[in-house]
């Protein structure tokens, strides 16, 4: 087995049960690589997930401690956990796009506002894939899914000059990046930075879903087709990219360690009150 898997992951869960050709494993591996390159041990990280392909395929793969929240709630659980845990423990979460940008968005925004120390990796397969392939809030406009048989027509979080990362930046996140699972070491470096930020970090990582998204949107499950389609639609955050839509990638915002982290803020506040009134 792969060196990283042997060192950090549980043999019972690896290889995962993801469809063959799915890009989720590439993304998962990047997170583990970043952890390894930072020299972290299993006991340094608490790994959280939600539901869906992203949750199911990554839950309890980590040899250390693990949790999975119900759909969209892992961020709120992590807020309480952050207060309880020693500050040097890292909370790293791998969650779906529906989980983070749909049902859990209110929690996500408030975690950003509070700058709660956690690293959220949004594993974005462009919709609700484990329920069979319905459109979500990053599904590019015009593309077909099982619930948009005539094409996705709604405004989404990543087109028309709107970018979910800008919203999270406004909300107070201190590290934000976007890389696809097909990108290489630059994506790993971004995840490392995200983990090192003592505050709210989010890395948006679109990845190819062959079984559902590719089948409906591109008319084929051949992995090579959606991989090619991903490459064609990937550009840097400063470029405009293809006319229909683009994965604009890069580090969007790095204000690492520049603002008080929530748990530290709470603890400092409590200590201050105790001093004042003792």
């Amino acid at each position: 087995m792969d060196y990283l898997a042997t060192k950090y992951l549980r043999p019972r869960k690896i290889p995962s049960t993801a469809c063959s050709g799915c890009g989720l494993g590439q993304a998962h591996k990047k997170v583990v690589m970043a952890i390894d390159e930072l020299g972290l041990a299993t006991g340094d990280v608490i790994w959280g997930t939600g539901i869906g392909c992203a949750g199911r395929q990554t839950f309890n793969t980590w040899k250390g401690d693990n949790f999975a929240g119900t759909h969209g709630r892992a961020y709120a659980i992590a807020t309480g956990l952050r207060i309880a845990l020693p500050p040097d423990k890292k909370i790293i979460m791998t969650v779906g796009d529906g989980d983070a940008f749909g049902i859990g968005f209110l929690h996500l925004l408030n975690c950003a506002r509070r700058n709660v120390d956690m690293t959220v990796i949004v594993l974005d397969n462009l919709g609700y894939q484990s329920t069979g392939g319905q459109y979500g809030w990053t599904t590019p406009r015009g593309y077909r899914t099982d619930s948009s048989p005539y094409g996705m027509y709604e405004p989404n979080w990543t087109q028309d000059g709107r970018d979910v990362l800008n919203i999270l930046r406004e909300a107070g996140a201190t590290f934000l990046a976007r890389y696809t699972s097909l990108q290489g070491q630059e994506a790993v470096e971004a995840i490392k930075k995200a983990i090192l930020n003592k505050g709210f970090s989010l890395v948006h990582m679109p990845y190819p879903c062959v079984t559902n998204f590719a089948e409906r949107a591109l008319g084929t499950r051949k992995p090579v087709e959606i991989y090619k389609w991903f490459m064609e639609h990937t550009c840097s955050m400063h470029e405009k990219g293809p006319a229909d839509f683009a994965f604009r990638t890069g580090i969007y915002y790095d204000a690492s360690n520049s603002r008080p982290e929530f748990a530290e803020l709470v603890k400092g506040w409590v200590a201050d009150i105790q001093r004042r009134y003792s």
């Binding site: 709120a76 309480g80 207060i83 309880a84 929690h107």
Partner: peptide
């Protein structure tokens, strides 16, 4: 921000030992 969050925060705190 709502009761949904409130109880989840309690869950997280309890999971962390509080």
């Amino acid at each position: 921000e709502d009761e949904l969050t409130a109880l989840h925060i309690c869950i997280g705190g309890s999971l962390g030992g509080l």
